[in-house]
Simulated assay, not measured.
Amino acid sequence: MFPTLTISSIFYLSFIVLAVWGISQAWLSQSRTETIHPFKSFVHLLAFYLSYLLIPLLFFSIYAGWIGQFSLHESIFIFLLSALLIYARFIEPHTVHVQHIQYKLGQDKAFTKPIKVALLADLHIGLFSGHERQLKTIVKKVNLEQPDFVVVAGDWTYEPENKLAEELSILKDIQAPVYSVNGNHDEQYPGPPIQALLAHALEVNNVMDIEGKIVEFDDFRLIGVGDLWAGKADMRYMPDLPQDKPWLILSHNPDTVDMVPVLSTRPLMLSGHTHGGQVELPWLTSYVMKKVSILGHKRGLYKHANADVFVSVGTGMVGVPFRFRVPPTIDIIELS
């Protein structure tokens, strides 16, 4: 058996090596990031990369408890906390779920055939998420569902690197039309002015920006509405549009539903923005959510005076590089 000092030294050395690696990676990533707050981005990236220290800490807690360096209670506490954070950092964010719902959009007349829509939201490609591994998983799962079309309800970015078009190239493998609107992070609320960078990345990767545009389908119309926080969510003109078909509205912030005017048929809005809380903790998540959605949206289907809104928990992360009890989700909505 190795002497106690040698084994302890191996752990300490691993902490030092990982810390140096994490700091260097955070610095390099920040240098490639489109941001107006370099230090803030660096701190966020430090949290992302230094989280790898949790892995040796997990094993060290067992060893330190065994040799008596930690008390039994200290060892158990550090082990459980490390295991929880490792799950929230390295496991749940990569466990992409698929959720199915059915919704009757054609209240007066049934559709000629059901339409399957894949809803993505909040990919937040940038500091924490949306990189090659996750995007490949998302594209694979979307294609397995064979939707008629895909909609992306904004927040594509989270201070992305300057190679955004290259990162999004995986989306070319989606075997259905992809329609999109921007979210608040894409519109500099908060975030850097990356509208031109994002517009180019979407265009070269076959994603159609439909903000302020209408897409015609046999039994309904899809309309893209701009972001609420960016002041682009005016829908007062909608009653003047043709009303012979029901409307499917794509808009990032679910609170936008409060601005939908009275229409001939009840529309459905598809949104994201909330992440479902991203980290589900008692009391704390509910407090934070009050700042995210004034109308109390979190996840799932909500009914309002003039429209219904479905809120996706999305797939990405902001603020902290964790998801806990809110796994990234692709929503498959069957319209009839």
Rank of each mutant, 00 (worst) to 15 (best):
Phe2Val: 11
Phe2Met: 13
Pro3His: 09
Ser8Ala: 11
Val17Ala: 14
Leu28Pro: 00
Leu28Val: 09
Ser29Pro: 08
Thr33Met: 04
Glu34Thr: 11
Thr35Arg: 08
Phe39Ala: 05
Ser41Val: 08
Phe42Arg: 08
Leu46Trp: 01
Leu46Phe: 10
Leu46Met: 06
Leu46Gly: 15
Ala47Cys: 07
Tyr49Asp: 00
Ile62Cys: 09
Gly65Met: 15
Trp66Asp: 10
Ala83His: 13
Ala88Cys: 13
Arg89Cys: 08
Arg89Ile: 04
Arg89Leu: 02
His94Lys: 00
Tyr103Arg: 06
Tyr103Leu: 09
Leu105Met: 03
Phe111Lys: 06
Ile115Val: 15
Lys116Cys: 07
Lys116Thr: 11
Lys116Glu: 02
Val117Arg: 02
Ala118His: 00
Asp122Phe: 00
Gln134Thr: 11
Lys136Cys: 12
Ile138Ala: 09
Lys141Asp: 12
Val142Trp: 06
Val142Pro: 03
Asn143Met: 10
Gln146Leu: 01
Asp155Ser: 01
Trp156Leu: 08
Trp156Gly: 00
Pro160Gly: 09
Glu161Asn: 09
Asn162Asp: 15
Asn162Met: 14
Glu166Met: 01
Glu167Leu: 09
Asp173Phe: 14
Asp173Lys: 15
Asp173Gln: 11
Ile174Asn: 07
Val181His: 00
Asn182Val: 03
His185Arg: 05
Gln188Trp: 06
Pro190Trp: 05
Gly191Arg: 01
Gly191Ala: 09
Ile194Glu: 05
Leu197Gln: 12
Leu197Gly: 10
Ala201Cys: 11
Val204Gln: 14
Asn206Ile: 11
Val207His: 01
Gly212His: 02
Lys213Cys: 12
Val215Ala: 08
Phe220Trp: 15
Phe220Leu: 04
Arg221Gly: 01
Leu222His: 11
Ile223Ser: 04
Val225Thr: 10
Val225Pro: 01
Ala230Phe: 10
Lys232His: 09
Ala233Thr: 06
Asp234His: 15
Arg236Lys: 13
Pro239Glu: 11
Gln243Met: 13
Gln243Asp: 10
Asp244Lys: 00
Leu250Ser: 05
Leu250Ile: 06
Ser251Arg: 08
Asn253Pro: 03
Asn253Trp: 04
Asn253Met: 07
Asp258Gly: 14
Leu263Tyr: 14
Pro267Ile: 02
Leu268Lys: 11
His275Glu: 11
His275Lys: 07
Gly276Phe: 02
Gly276Val: 05
Leu281Glu: 09
Leu281Gly: 15
Trp283Gly: 07
Leu284Thr: 09
Lys290Phe: 15
Val292Glu: 08
Lys298Ile: 09
Arg299Asn: 11
Tyr302Thr: 12
His304Cys: 07
Val309Ala: 05
Val311Lys: 02
Val311Glu: 03
Ser312Trp: 07
Met317Asp: 14
Met317Arg: 12
Gly319Ala: 15
Arg323Leu: 03
Pro328Leu: 04
Thr329Cys: 13
Asp331Ser: 13
Ile333Met: 13
Ile333Ala: 03
Glu334Asp: 07
Glu334Phe: 05
Glu334His: 02
